[in-house]
């Protein structure tokens, strides 16, 4: 096969992919190997002293209620961001995919959230919900006749608010992709369905939704990575993982253990576990979703 494609250049293909391989090795595989190695040690911050502890980091990890709590919190958070986030995005994209006046304005107005930095988004949400000075607790207090909403001492509420902020932040991205997906659904199909007397609701679920499946599966994947890895900024600004450990997502816990508490061995063990979990979920998702996706054309 190779000889056919590059006659007379046996090593050319390897040479061509060498830069990518080098980058992957230097920046991904190398550090990954190192963190697996370090997960069997405890060490001082600058590595001046290391002690081999075997599986102790892992044993502590899985016997730590804080870590198990963090796993549960992460899955709740991810479920919210993925399920609620994608549903709302799809609904909004469907509304935007109509010929109405000023649709360009609405599109921009709904998409721009993605352009905000996590820090700014975090500050906006945190000040909106600030217990003593925020607008939302104020409105709720008036409407409910004095209920004092304080997410700084209410873990469930804090998790809900952080999840909502993360979902809001991702809406723009999801809407763009759903909109592009919707615009690729051939109009003839919907027209044919209409002539056959299908209700818009039925047409959506029987035609549009299945035809969107490549987009949906892509977004599922991206949103999962987002929920697991990219919400650090939001958490750091809004809650620092609190109150208690109510919003301590896995990546945030890893960051605290590794970079604030300088406990690199323990953090390395965590990163390996996260890698394992994410790979498993990703493989399952890719298997199921891509097999079921319908590719038109």
């Amino acid at each position: 096969m190779h000889e056919d494609r590059f006659p007379g250049h046996k090593f050319l293909p390897y040479l061509l992919i060498a830069p990518s391989i080098a980058v992957i090795f230097i920046f991904l595989i190398g550090p990954f190997g190192q963190s697996i190695y370090e997960s069997f040690f405890v060490s001082t911050p600058f590595g001046t002293r290391t002690i081999y502890v075997g599986l102790r980091n892992y044993i502590r990890l899985f016997s730590s209620p804080d870590y198990l709590n963090s796993v549960a919190v992460t899955f709740k958070f991810a479920a919210f961001v993925i399920i609620i986030g994608l549903s709302i995005s799809l609904a909004i994209a469907q509304l935007l995919n109509q010929k109405i006046r000023g649709v360009g304005f609405y599109q921009v107005a709904l998409i721009w959230t993605y352009a905000i930095s996590p820090t700014i988004a975090g500050v906006i949400w945190a000040s909106m919900f600030a217990p003593a000075t925020g607008l939302i607790p104020y409105i709720i207090s008036i409407l409910s006749g004095g209920y004092k909403m304080n997410w700084m001492t209410n873990g469930q509420l804090a998790l809900l608010i952080v999840s909502a902020a993360a979902t809001w932040k991702m809406l723009g991205y999801n809407i763009i992709f759903f909109l592009a997906g919707l615009q690729n659904v051939p109009g003839e199909f919907l027209e044919a369905a209409q002539i056959d007397g299908a209700s818009p609701w039925k047409a959506f679920w029987r035609i549009t939704f299945p035809m969107l499946s490549p987009t949906t599966s892509f977004l599922l994947f991206v949103n999962m990575l987002y929920a697991f890895f990219q919400v650090f900024g939001l958490i750091d600004i809004m809650t620092h993982g609190g109150p208690g450990n109510a919003t301590e997502l896995l990546v945030y816990k890893l960051y605290r253990d590794g970079f604030i508490y300088l406990n690199t061995g323990f953090a390395s063990a965590q990163s390996f576990v996260i890698f394992f979990v994410i790979s498993a979920v990703a493989i399952i998702q890719l298997r199921i979703v891509t097999r079921k996706a319908i590719y038109f054309r």
């Binding site: 001492t153 209410n154 873990g155 993982g241 609190g242 109150p243 208690g244 450990n245």
Partner: peptide
């Protein structure tokens, strides 16, 4: 801090 938060929240 996280223990105090748990106590205040009644957890």
């Amino acid at each position: 801090v996280s223990s105090l938060e748990k106590s205040l929240a009644g957890q």
